[in-house]
């Protein structure tokens, strides 16, 4: 084994070790933050979809504009909200 190869192997292992440590310490915090962010996002979705879910929304004209941007996460969203099937007749994501 040459000197350079050994040095390279060592720096790779060190990087992997550091990443493992970071994950060990930061992991739980990151999970909490991720959950908090998801809560904000879920609330947002609920507000925007209000009218479609039967909650009168006086700003429905403007909420409608924001709906397309929620489409991709819709399925995951309704599962998280405890609705096993899509609550909207029109969205057959599942």
């Amino acid at each position: 084994m040459t000197h350079r190869t050994a040095a390279l192997r060592f720096s790779e292992r060190w990087a992997a070790f550091r990443e493992g440590l970071t994950e060990y310490y930061a992991g739980p915090y990151r999970q909490t933050l991720a959950r908090e962010r998801r809560d904000e996002d879920d609330l947002f979705t609920l507000v925007v979809l209000g009218e479609a879910l039967g909650v009168p929304d006086p700003a429905a004209y403007y909420s409608a504009e924001l709906m397309p941007m929620l489409a991709e996460d819709f399925h995951a969203w309704h599962r998280r909200m405890g609705m096993p099937r899509s609550p909207l007749d029109q969205m057959s994501c599942c």
Binding site: E51, P56, D57, A60, Y61
Partner: peptide, 8 residues
């Protein structure tokens, strides 16, 4: 829904 919503 948005089309016929009150307030639109």
């Amino acid at each position: 829904r948005a089309r016929v919503a009150p307030g639109s």
